[in-house]
């Protein structure tokens, strides 16, 4: 049952991801991207990562893609400049992707010997024996606030840096318009005085 669901959702995800790329209408692409996110979320559910699945839908499906759609619809991209991709670029990227994919699969199937698998599992379990595998959200939260505290803080710090960068970049324009406003006001005030 789980296998069947995995194949259904995986096929659905790959198909909609493919449609994101090949669609010429930007709105269609965005809609297929939402479907892709939902598909990835359902794949997470088959792996019992419920929290990740919900976050995928909540953050990417519910918030970020709405902004994407907004930008596309406000700029009116659909029907406008339909990109005609270069044939050579397409061929090169497709062949590279295919080689990379097949290469990865072959590499993993060659090196995935049972002895290696045992090694990996023992090396991890010795460090993480207080983190039991569980689909519960509280376990995830416990892990994030104890063992993975540093990565969480670093990720949060990176986001903060990105936010400050955006504020700094967009602030320049605001300052410019303000000075323009002030100069207009100043000129008006000056004319009133004169």
């Amino acid at each position: 049952m789980t296998d069947l669901l995995f194949y259904i959702f995986a096929g659905f995800t790959i198909l909609s991801a493919f449609c994101v790329v090949i669609n010429q209408n930007a709105v269609n692409s965005a809609m297929f991207m939402i479907l892709t996110f939902v598909g990835v979320a359902s794949l997470s559910i088959t792996m019992q990562a419920y929290f990740m699945a919900i976050l995928q839908v909540l953050v990417y499906g519910g918030a970020i893609m709405v902004l994407f759609l907004f930008i596309i619809m406000l700029l009116g991209v659909e029907g406008g400049d339909k990109l005609k991709p270069n044939m050579l670029t397409v061929l090169a990227s497709v062949s590279f992707l295919a080689i990379a994919l097949v290469g990865t699969v072959i590499a993993f199937s060659l090196f995935d010997s049972p002895s290696l698998g045992n090694k990996i599992s023992t090396s991890i379990s010795s460090e993480a024996d207080f983190l039991v595998f569980s689909s519960q959200t509280s376990q995830l939260g416990y892990g994030l606030f104890t063992k993975y505290m540093l990565p969480v803080q670093v990720a949060g710090f990176l986001l903060l840096v990105a936010m400050i960068g955006v504020i700094y970049l967009s602030k320049k324009e605001v300052v410019k318009t303000k000075t323009l406003d002030e100069s207009i006001k100043g000129s008006v005030a000056g004319s009133e005085v004169s």
Binding site: Y50, F51, I54, L55, V57, G61, G62, S135, Q136, T137
Partner: peptide
């Protein structure tokens, strides 16, 4: 399900 209220928020946001 364990994530009840988040499910409501996530689906509601769609």
């Amino acid at each position: 399900i364990d994530i009840g209220i988040l499910f409501i928020f996530a689906v509601g946001s769609l």
